[in-house]
Design a binder for these strands. Sequence first.
DNA 1: GTTGAGAGTCACTTTGCGGTGACTTACTGG
DNA 2: CCAGTAAGTCACCGCAAAGTGACTCTCAAC
Lengths: 211, 211
Amino acid sequence: MKMEEMQQGSQRQRDRHQTEQRLLKAASELIARDGFQALGVNALAKEAGVDKVLIYRYFGGLEGLMEQLGNQLELWLGDGHKAEIVEYPSYAHFAEVVLWRYAEALRKSILLQRLLAWELVSQDPLIHRLGIARSRAVSQWFLRLGSKTPPPPAGVDVAVLNALLIGSVHHLVLRATSSGDFAGVDLKLEAIWERIRLELSEVIHARLSPP
Amino acid sequence: MKMEEMQQGSQRQRDRHQTEQRLLKAASELIARDGFQALGVNALAKEAGVDKVLIYRYFGGLEGLMEQLGNQLELWLGDGHKAEIVEYPSYAHFAEVVLWRYAEALRKSILLQRLLAWELVSQDPLIHRLGIARSRAVSQWFLRLGSKTPPPPAGVDVAVLNALLIGSVHHLVLRATSSGDFAGVDLKLEAIWERIRLELSEVIHARLSPP
DNA sequence: GTTGAGAGTCACTTTGCGGTGACTTACTGG
DNA sequence: CCAGTAAGTCACCGCAAAGTGACTCTCAAC
């Protein structure tokens, strides 16, 4: 009789690795469902169906668990990193495609959204570190996708324009899952997101296409 | 001897109105300094130098106090509502000026920033209601300032463009006070904000000025 | 003066949190 | 077969939170 098959019933299954994975998964789900505010040892242990003492034994506390969760950060972006690198006819085309890829990945990853939102309110140094890791992962993703692209036109403040564009995407996505609307626009409708995509494209080409 | 002048020392000053104002002011300062997470009856009472039972007696609890604080919401926007209504040569000029006014008012009002950020993470219906009141106040402010302005050019998705622009302003201001940087841009520098203003202006005119 | 109402004070209960010590159970290496 | 180690369970501690009851003090109306 193999060990994996027996289930004594009186106690849990005695598999450290599986318990760790349970905890990490439960943490993800808890954050995605209720946000970082709800992440406590008691709630997490209950969500995972595991005793809370194991959080301390295996991870040294919530901080350690979060740190380990953060290591899977690039995984939070979903399959976006599988995107192939193509050659774009212009920087504007590149920006348009990559920005929209990012927007779609962000919309799908509630976990990443929760982290972005929490970065705006928390002063916890751990969250700050997670934010730095997130930022680095994202910009590397951008860099990789843009490795074969023409340079942007001169005379345009590309850094600031990028910040504006990414900022608007962040804010709209975050408002979509929090209140569902923003500035009179109903972000729950899929048709609106198509209009957002179009308008982003217009803005990018209006600013970045050579006149 | 007037009642207002005596100060017995053994007990507080026996002035209900002043105590209420103390509490409201303390709540503002507490939120501005430490955020909504730090807003509890104990912390608030300590900040105001007042017994916490008075929060329940005078406001019926934190919710009531917050509600009353929310009524002063348009006051949070600072002296922005004192701005005179002028006639703009074009919709683009109007958008440029008003958007930047809003950005500057928002940068100055940490209280409003805290509310905006908290709306993104909280599921509290009270915060949701506050957000609706805030949104209404802001859009009325926009409407008032734009009462004498030419219509926007046809063929442009003005609603979505506005959401994008306001969203980017929101996000950059919020990141400025939380982490201080965004997308590789150092939001602590005043020079950067000048570049942001310029780039916003460029985007607005590129999209809204008739070609 | 007396008294009643309202402002302020204090002690208390309850509840949920993070965190820990001591225990039981099961597997493993010798 | 036995002993040690590791997984899991349980009860508990200290603490800070929200909220409440009962008290004192002060003034004003009569």
